[in-house]
Design a protein around this nucleic acid. Structure first.
Length: 345
DNA sequence: ATTGCATTAATGCCTCGAGT
DNA sequence: ACTCGAGGCATTAATGCAAT
């Protein structure tokens, strides 16, 4: 085979040796799941512990859970709310639902989510709720106190109550015991097993993971002095049903589009392949506000793409070989039409 | 403040083919 | 003919942020 990398190959070479090029791309893909960004809203353990200790103090070692006291404390140390939610083992949405049901107030899932997010972003900033917000927070605290005090009701054996866990099963006495004596390592592991490890945090930084790749592309483009338009989340760009991540030189004149995707999951990878194929067909057909024949470039990362040989073939053919990974990103400009837009050496 | 959108991971069900 | 595993596919849940 004459060419090493798919982006150097002619279309004839590409289709003749598709499998070899798939191997080449696979070889340069690596997985990055072992490390993840902390992100803005990451709650470090000392902060979380501070919330916990505060709650433990004002409840006198979890011997009494009273709404007025906890509400006042939560305003002062907002992480108390996060700790309460963790004791319940609920998502913000779920907490909002039970609070709404029991209080009769309208407490939307979005409200609980943004409150939780706000606290995680600024754990040390006291809350100053407006008259509209205050009763909602009170209702959240109220229902948490009640549920944590009552513990899990008995359920038929085939059902499992969400409060049926070590520290909440028997109401306050369970929490009290857990706080005083700790919980066995096996119990910690069991909880971890039920909730996939780092799930909440992973979900919240899911977009930052992709940023690493996007930033690398941005650097390449900027260094070469190439004009580009980077689209934002859920942005609408005329001509595209879903906006590609980069458009060169601008959204009004799409000559080159770049899709950047990292995934560790094969289902997601499949989805991305479909999307890139769709871009390729848009390029072939053109559209009301799209010139025909714009170049489609894929920049990919993560082991998810390794799972699917057939899909990778499709992607290589759809992009005419213009598939880059973190390892080959330095060749991005040289081997694509991007070089036509270069203004610096 | 609320809503809608895109993104991501995880999971169950289905199909297909290899091996017994 | 049957079993088992792998891969494909669709669905679900959770999340942050731009738009409203």
């Amino acid at each position: 085979m004459a060419s090493t990398y798919p982006f150097e190959a002619s279309f004839e070479e590409l289709s003749a040796h598709a499998d070899a090029f798939v191997d080449e791309v696979f070889a340069s893909l690596e997985s990055g799941f072992l490390v993840m960004p902390r992100g803005q809203g990451f709650v470090a353990f000392p902060d979380f512990e501070n919330g916990y200790e505060t709650l433990k103090q004002v409840t006198e070692n979890f011997s009494k859970l009273e709404e007025p006291i906890i509400f006042a404390t939560a305003l002062r140390v907002p992480l108390v709310l996060v700790v309460l939610r963790t004791m319940l083992g609920f998502t913000p949405s779920e907490w909002a639902y039970v609070a709404g049901q029991s209080s009769g107030l309208e407490i939307t899932q979005g409200f609980a989510r943004s409150l939780d997010r706000k606290i995680r972003l600024n754990p040390m900033t006291p809350l100053r709720p407006s008259p509209v917000i205050e009763p909602r927070i009170r209702a959240l605290v109220e229902i948490a106190c009640k549920m944590l005090s009552d513990g899990a009701p008995t359920t038929p054996p085939e059902l499992l109550h969400r409060l049926d866990k070590a520290d909440t099963r028997g109401g306050l006495s369970s929490a009290k015991a857990a706080a005083a004596m700790g919980v066995p390592y096996a119990m910690l592991l069991y909880e971890r097993f039920l909730g996939r490890p780092f799930a909440g945090h992973r979900d919240s930084i899911s977009e930052l993971v992709g940023d690493v790749l996007e930033l690398a592309i941005e650097t390449e483009l900027t260094n070469a002095g190439i004009s580009f338009r980077k689209t934002r989340r859920a942005e609408r760009v005329p001509g595209f049903d879903q906006a590609p991540d980069f458009i060169v030189p601008s959204e009004f004149n799409p000559q080159i589009v770049i899709e950047a995707k990292i995934t560790e999951d094969d289902g997601t990878a499949r989805d991305k392949v479909t999307r890139i194929q769709h871009l390729a067909s848009l390029s072939a057909s053109g559209g009301p506000s799209l010139p025909r024949g714009f170049e489609v470039i894929a920049c990919i990362g993560g082991r998810g793409f390794k799972q699917r040989r057939e899909d990778m073939k499709k992607m290589l053919l759809a992009t005419k070989g213009k598939v880059f990974t973190v390892k080959t990103l330095t060749k991005l400009i040289e081997f694509t039409r991007l070089k036509e837009f270069r203004t610096t050496r």
